[in-house]
Structures are given as C-alpha cells and as structure tokens.
Design a protein around this nucleic acid. Sequence first.
DNA 1: GTTCGTGACGAACGTTGTTCGCTACGAACA
DNA 2: TGTTCGTAGCGAACAACGTTCGTCACGAAC
Lengths: 240, 240
Amino acid sequence: MDSPVRPRSTRARPAKPPLSEDLILDTALRILREEGLEAVTMRRLATELDTGPASLYVYISGRQELREAMLDRVARMVDLEEADPARWREQLHRLVKQTLTAMEAHPGIAEVAVANPPSGEHGLQVADNLLALLLAGGITAQDAAWACDIIMLIATASAVETAVYQQRDMNETEFHDRLHTVFASLPAARYPHLTALSAEMINGDGDQRFHFAIDTFLDGLVARAERARAGSANVPRDAG
Amino acid sequence: MDSPVRPRSTRARPAKPPLSEDLILDTALRILREEGLEAVTMRRLATELDTGPASLYVYISGRQELREAMLDRVARMVDLEEADPARWREQLHRLVKQTLTAMEAHPGIAEVAVANPPSGEHGLQVADNLLALLLAGGITAQDAAWACDIIMLIATASAVETAVYQQRDMNETEFHDRLHTVFASLPAARYPHLTALSAEMINGDGDQRFHFAIDTFLDGLVARAERARAGSANVPRDAG
DNA sequence: GTTCGTGACGAACGTTGTTCGCTACGAACA
DNA sequence: TGTTCGTAGCGAACAACGTTCGTCACGAAC
C-alpha cells in the first residue's frame, strides 16, 4: 500500500484505502463480472467499499455516469491495431472480436453501450481505430463513417445476446436447444418459415454468427467501394 | 399461445371500465408514447387506471412480462408483406422500415427489444415474414436465418438511437450538431480519423443511415448467394 | 337465502437512487 | 501553539420502486 495520505482516524475502524474514482470503478467492475449489471447498485457498491452510499457521490455524480465510466473502462481493455492495408479485414475482425470479448466478460455492460453511444476516452479510441481500418481497406470516407456505427452495433448486440442467456444461468447450447424447441413447436400454418428453418435459426455458435454478420457487411461495403471506383457517376447517396 | 382471453369479468362497474389486459396495455403504451419507458411503472400505470398497483397483478405477472407484452403490441402494428421474388428487396425495406417507425413512435421500447429477442405472437410473425422475403430473394436457408437476426437488430438499434436524443429533448439536427462539435473538437493527435471524418460521421438523417445499413448488408448477402450458386462446393470465406 | 370463486385493493415489506446536514480531519494561517 | 476552514466521509432520511399478502365485495351458482 503506497498511498501518500493515510487517514489516521480516531474512529475505531480498521485502516481502509481512501476512496477514489479508480477504486470505485474497479470495485464496480468486479461486482459486474461476478453478479451482473443488476447487482451494481449504489448501495451494494458502497457496502463493498465499507462505506455508505452518500460517500460515492463525492467522486461520481450518479448512477448513469457510473455506468458510462464502467463502459469506458471496459473499452480500455481493447488492444488497438496499427492499420495495414494488406491485412485490414483480419485486423478489423480482431479489433471487433476483442471488443466483443471484453463486453462478454462483463455481462450487462453491453446494455449500457446500446443506450449510450461511446463518448468516453477509450470508446472513442476504438471507434477511431475502426475508422482507420475501414479507410485502409479502401472504403470511402462516407461509407466508413456510417459503417463504423453499424459494426460497433453488431458487436454490442452480440454481447447483449450472450448476456441474455448468461443471466438465465444457461450455456450456449442449452439456450439454443430451448430456442429450437420453441421455434419447432410453433403452429406451422402461421409461422411456416420459422418452423421450417428452426434448425438453421439456432445453428452455429456465437463466434460463427458474429463472423457471418461482420463478413457479410464487409462484403457489402467492399462491393460498394468497387462500384464507386468503377464509375463515379452512379453514386446515388449524396443528396446534399 | 392460442388461448383467447375469456371475458370472465362481466361485472360492469358504473364509474370506470373493468380492468383487462387489453386496457392495461393500451394505457401502458399511451404513457410510453407520452413520457417514455421510464415513466411506465406499475404504480404510475395503476394510478392512470384509477386503481392500486396490486390490481395489475391479476392480469400481468410482473414488470418484465408487461414490457414484453408492450413490445409485442408494437410489433402488431407492422403490416406484413406477401413475398414476391420480383420485389423482395423493396418489400424487405418496407417491412423493416415499418418496424423501425413503430418503435420510434414508442420511445424506449427498442431497449426492451434488444434485451428480449422477440418471443411474442406478433414479433415472431414479423420475423417469419422477414425470412420469407429473404428466401424469396434467393438467399440460402442458413444465411437467411442468420441474416434475420442481424436485420432486426439493425432496426432495433436504429430505434434506440432515435430514442436517445428524443429522451434528451432534442431533434435530429440539433443532436447531430452537438455530436459534430464533440468530434471536431477532439484532440486530433489521439483521434486523427474521428476529427477528420467528423462531418461524415453525422452526415445524413436517420432514414439515410438506416437504408445504408440495410442495403449494404443485403448487398453482402446477395454476393454470398451468388457465390454459393456459382461454386457448387463449399463457400470460400476469404474471397478478396 | 346461502355459499363461493374471484376481481379488486389497502397496506405493507424490502429495495432502489439521491439529498441534506453534521462530523472530524489535515492544512493553512495567526 | 491555537484557531479557522475547506472538504471527504457518512448517518439519516425521503420519495419512489416492484411485489406480496390478507381481505373485502360482488355476481353467479346452488
């Protein structure tokens, strides 16, 4: 313990580290990992820090800011990629997969991410890196900017899906089996395609589905870029 | 899930209409439209119905079920499309746009949709219809099944984004202007691409961005379908 | 006229986020 | 050394939340 100021209190209390935003966020993320987002309440957090809820408000303005700060902490765990035009697709996959993994390790944080577009230091860093990779891939500036949103969104939503069955104490196959039963037992007259494709709907693990989504979207992006390069006349999107 | 609601409570009270699941959901959606998801609490709902919170539990098992039922009510507002292979892309756009519009009219309901994959009668109906359109477009069964998720997700996430600034009492351009200022005033050394593309990041209204996302993804899907038809063997993943 | 199932509901319990003052400490100052 | 003072810390309280329990009132069946 190398804290410069130790509160030598007269109050009968074992020496505890002084509160700080860092300590609060570390503790919050630990509760999040162990018990999910619902468990991260101001009171629970205060109890874990051996204090009262009011003490937290010195460092954090409220629940919403706490959650956003937690989200940015998670974004900090993502290792960035130095854009290389020869490997941009692979790099993009790595970057986004890392984002997904970091979120999946903190079940519930993805829900915060969907409602709050990244505004923190590290979240924006990831967005900037993603833009770099898209530009390295020859995607036009406008497409890259729009695609940045969508790709982040796919990662976030994938993490939410993981959190859904984690919160219900199930693993992936268990969850898929349950879903398959639901789809297959639907009235075929009203849901002809869902029942027919009940097997395909739950096929593949999260990784496969995630890569399918990213890959398909990138295929579309690349096709647009090639079309834009071929004839610059037939680009209909810019309307002013 | 096909047990119709029995009009068991024939007791007609003089002053106020009898409670029913329909009446509860209609009232809940009205509060949702007028004041957002946060305002839809059991107590607020009960007050609006001139009763106490306990009365609601006769018809609705709890808050979570209420929200899911509200979501399915919103899904009910979507007009389905009869799949026509000649117009499938246009039809798909219409279907998904309608879903988006219905959600945007009920700010906050999209948050429910991301955390709860559609399990209600009408939500599944929309999913089934979406599958039909993809199959009509010649997408393979497996791709259609996976794409169904992604496309719904894009619609849902777009609605969430709309709800974000609606909740902050802003319109779209106001929100974009604010974002542009944020991006442009970032330190260019740390965020070179975000600052450089600050204009492109906020370009276009929600409709344009939404159509870009759907169109790009469909382009990728169609390309995959063509590749699958061309090479009868397995689909190569990394076709540059 | 009595019984009975059930919709309705008052009251309460245990949570939650947040605010308001008071306390006591360390540092600055006389 | 003695005094003041800003402020981190914290106890207590407030309003609002979801949910449950026991009970009441009523229409219908007997």
